[in-house]
């Protein structure tokens, strides 16, 4: 079976600053992939490229056998089919919550995809219930807490039940309870046909949310493997700025070792 996403030698620059440099990867349908890397490693840019919000300046990006180019996306039929199948949750929920109320926010995507009104109403209500935010239905976004905003942002894409979910730092800035809610949600999709690609720099959650980890370093894939393989490779994690050498003393002996920060566990 051909991969769902296939990227070959992809380059992308922000003005003169390179964000992706000759990146190649393939992601199969139903895979749960974690993109890990330090700040500025190209995770968010890669997600935008996969969501066809920006296009490669060099190289090729294919989705289900179709090239993701500005020309292809200009075709309404292809664009609607693509947007129906692929959805992105942005890192900053304020960017994604631009409607006057939570209800309007969740209804935005199905309305733009021109679903019938009755279907929109039914799906929005079901999604609000699923995400436990039905009580926020008429609330404007500026009156939501950080955790509530993130849930609404997730609901606003889950409402169309996309085949591919692109999540940009879904648990960043969330309290532990909201974090575990998001992780539980991603775990529920394990074994389904849903493809989930999550960008994160929180190593402690990758075992829960992914079957494969891609380590990004300076705009290219530095390593790929199972979460256990990647997390065991301390040299790689140190080089990619995902862990730091932690120095402390036992008795009079000072020693150092890689250190992973975690809210749920503290690994030595």
């Amino acid at each position: 079976m051909p991969p769902l996403f296939e990227l070959r030698d992809v380059c992308f620059n922000y003005d003169d600053i390179p964000a992706l440099r000759g990146l190649s990867l393939a992601i199969a349908q139903g895979e749960r992939v974690a993109l890990v890397g330090a700040n500025g490693s190209g995770k968010s840019t890669l997600l935008r490229l996969l969501d066809a919000l920006c296009f490669a300046s060099q190289g090729s990006v294919n989705f289900d056998g179709h090239p993701l180019t500005a020309e292809y996306l200009a075709d309404d039929q292809f664009a609607f089919a693509f947007r129906r199948r692929v959805a992105l949750v942005f890192q900053n929920p304020d960017v994604q919550l631009f409607n006057p109320t939570v209800f309007d926010e969740v209804a935005f995507a199905p309305l733009q995809l021109q679903w019938p009104k009755e279907q929109v109403l039914a799906r929005v209500s079901a999604t609000l219930e699923l995400m436990g935010i039905a009580h926020l239905r008429d609330r404007p976004p500026y009156r939501l807490s950080g955790g509530e905003k993130k849930r609404v942002a997730l609901a606003s894409v889950l409402v169309i039940d996309p085949d591919v979910l692109l999540l940009d730092e879904p648990t960043a800035t969330l309290d532990p309870r909201s974090q575990s809610h998001v992780i539980d949600l991603i775990q529920e999709w394990k074994g389904s046909s849903k493809t989930v690609i999550t960008a994160t720099h929180q190593l402690e959650i990758v075992e829960d949310i992914a079957d494969r980890v891609l380590v990004l370093e300076a705009g290219t894939v530095a390593a790929s493997g199972t979460p256990a393989e990647i997390l065991a490779n301390h040299d790689l994690l140190l080089r990619a700025n995902l862990v730091h050498a932690h120095r402390h003393s036992h008795g009079g002996v000072v020693h150092s070792h890689p250190h992973i920060h975690s809210h749920s566990k503290h690994e030595h």
Binding site: R48, D76, A79, R84, F90, Q112, L113, Q114
Partner: peptide, 21 residues
């Protein structure tokens, strides 16, 4: 922020003509 918001709208199917209930 406005660039980001526009991308977020595009990502959810906005094609230049807003559909409302």
């Amino acid at each position: 922020l406005s660039n980001e918001v526009y991308l977020a709208m595009q990502s959810r199917g906005f094609r230049g003509d807003v559909q409302v209930l």
